[in-house]
Amino acid sequence: MRLVNRHPSRRAAIVLAALPFAALALAYVVGSEIRLAANPQDKLLPAPGTIWETAVRLFTVPDPRSGELLVWQDTWASLRRLAIGVGLAAAISLVLGMAIGLLPYLRRTFAGFVAVISMVPPLALLPVLFIVFGLGEVSKIVLITIGIAPFLTRDLSQRVLAIPREQMVKAQTLGASSLVIALRVALPQTLPHLIGGVRLSLGAAWLFLIAAEAVASDVGLGYRIFLVRRYLAMDIILTYVIWITVLAFAIDWTLRWVSRRAFPWMGASL
């Protein structure tokens, strides 16, 4: 039988999916044991038990100096920036993407512009943003927004253009105005792709967030990681990395759940 036609059974599929995680964990444990055996003071690969203790301490024991649970403060600050930045980008690109996809005049005006703008590396603009918006919240949010909005806009305008011509004509034969075509034909068929696009660009959004927090901040997940780097506190860094991964996964899962619930007509294509 050809390899392309061979499929694992259900149970085998679960085992296979778990395999890479197990392999990574094993490699870490072995590496950590070897290094700690050679030098018990080694900080590079702390034992899993040490990371666990650190994680429990970070999430439950308040910081002695401020009396606050820093990880929750950092999480709240970072998620807030992420939500505002991504939300703004989604709103802007939904309006712009639909306009570009539906209206030939705006398409001629903006399609090329957006294509060029999306080539600008957003991180290169970070110093400019700090100069223009200061070191506060605004520059971090703006970085996330301009980092992902061009991609989202292009994606959504393509999705609108991909709606079959037959549907657009059909709507007109039912008397739909441009506004009605936008609200009742294009918008509902674009929203699932907006959620899909946001899911795809969340990775980039986290990157921009952590980069901005690393450079200039006094709270946030990225700020904390780069702060404790100075003390080689790998147990804290790894706790934060795993926490960020859990958050990103939870957000992605939630968005997928929302779009399945909200757009039943999309069937299995989500």
Partner: peptide
């Protein structure tokens, strides 16, 4: 048309109602 003549995001009933509602100002 041969294909794509109904709206995939609307139920069968809503597709028929669309023949009335799409002619209104905001589509509802």
């Amino acid at each position: 048309f041969q294909r794509y003549s109904v709206f995939p995001h609307l139920t069968v009933r809503a597709n028929v109602v669309a023949a009335e509602s799409f002619a209104t100002r905001r589509g509802w």
